[in-house]
Structures are given as structure tokens and as C-alpha cells.
């Protein structure tokens, strides 16, 4: 990794932490508040690519694990990983990786809608697969029950997919970080 890559990794760990400072938006129709923080993994993957994006989110989780209150609502410490929603935190790393990998693969032909689909596959499909699996084990539920308990968050996450895609594509136009792969 070049020096630049190390700084990018630290930067997006910090960006995701800073997103946690935004107060959660309560949407009357939905039962759950929407936090800006899960934009972080989508942006990290879509802007930095698979490896650096996943490392940035892993770094944030390390900071949280060693006791910094960087998750939205000032949460932090080891306990958050062992809670029922711990899988969604670890899933952020996977979300950034999948989003980044898909963006890298089609970097030169990316349109808004393919970008949104890729961000959805990483930031929602991959994330929920891990999160729901973990919830089922930690809370002793069947996979179906765990999934049913998580669907309330999906509308908010789709809004975030659209926001992240808009931001990532604007950054791609004016300050691209993922270089086009020569073998692509």
C-alpha cells in the first residue's frame, strides 16, 4: 500500500465516524430511526474500492472496539459487537468490500442506475445477509424471524443507497480515486 492509501483508509474511517455525529432522523411512517452512519460503508466502497474501503471500515470497528464512542448515539466498546445487531457492524466491512469490488469491475461504464444497484447489492444485500445470520444466532431466532425483524430498516437503507450513489458518482467525475483496471 502506498502512503496515500493509508491516509485514505484513515480518512474514510473518520468520515464514517463523523457521519455518526448527525442526529438520527425519525421517520413517522417507519418504526425505526434512520442514522446517517451506514452511508459510510457504501461511500468507502464506492469511492475507495474494495480493499481500501473494507480496510477503512475495519479500522473504524477497531477504534470502536478499543473503547471510542464513535457509533451513532455515542455507542462504542466491545459490547456493541456481542449485541444482537453486532452482525450488521461486521457486515459493514463486507458491504464496503462488495460495493467497492463491483464499482472497480465496471468503473469506466458506470451509470447512475448500475451504481445504485451495486451499492444496493453491497450496502443492503451483503450487509443484511451477515446481519440477519448473526441476529438469528445471537437471539436464538429462525432466519425467517430474524429477517422479519430487520425489514423495517430496509426503506431507510434504500434512501441511503441513492444518496451514496449520487455522492460517489459526483466524486468519480471530479476527483476519481479508483483507477480503471488495465485488464478490465
Amino acid at each position: 500500500m502506498r502512503t496515500k492509501d493509508l491516509v485514505y483508509v484513515a480518512l474514510f474511517a473518520a468520515v464514517t465516524a463523523a457521519l455518526g455525529l448527525f442526529p438520527p432522523i425519525a421517520v413517522p411512517v417507519l418504526a425505526v430511526p434512520i442514522t446517517a452512519q451506514s452511508l459510510g460503508p457504501m461511500l468507502a466502497g464506492a469511492i475507495l474500492g474494495a480493499k481500501r474501503g473494507a480496510l477503512a471500515i475495519a479500522l473504524l470497528l477497531i477504534l470502536v472496539a478499543i473503547g471510542l464512542p464513535l457509533l451513532s448515539g455515542g455507542r462504542g466498546g466491545f459490547g456493541v459487537f456481542l449485541g444482537p445487531s453486532g452482525g450488521f457492524l461486521v457486515g459493514w466491512v463486507l458491504a464496503a468490500f462488495v460495493t467497492g469490488w463491483l464499482f472497480e469491475r465496471s468503473w469506466s461504464t458506470l451509470t447512475y442506475w448500475t451504481g445504485a444497484i451495486y451499492t444496493f447489492l453491497g450496502g443492503v444485500v451483503a450487509l443484511y445477509t451477515l446481519g440477519i445470520g448473526w441476529l438469528a444466532v445471537a437471539a436464538n431466532l429462525s432466519l425467517f424471524q430474524a429477517a422479519a425483524g430487520s425489514v423495517a430498516f430496509i426503506p431507510g437503507d434504500i434512501v441511503k443507497v441513492l444518496i451514496a450513489t449520487t455522492v460517489a458518482l459526483a466524486v468519480k467525475r471530479s476527483y476519481p480515486i479508483i483507477e480503471e483496471r488495465s485488464d478490465g
Partner: peptide
Amino acid sequence: AIPVVIRTLKMADDIADAMEARGFDAD
């Protein structure tokens, strides 16, 4: 978010350049 991300990316590039100018070697 767009100007914030672009400005912080530029800042990151400047920091990386400054580190290398001071002899930091990532590899």
C-alpha cells in the same frame, strides 16, 4: 456531502505528500 468528501480527499493527498516529503516510506 459532495464538497466535503472532495475537500477531505484533497486534504488526504496533501497529507500523504507531506509525509513522503518528510521521509515516510509506506513500503
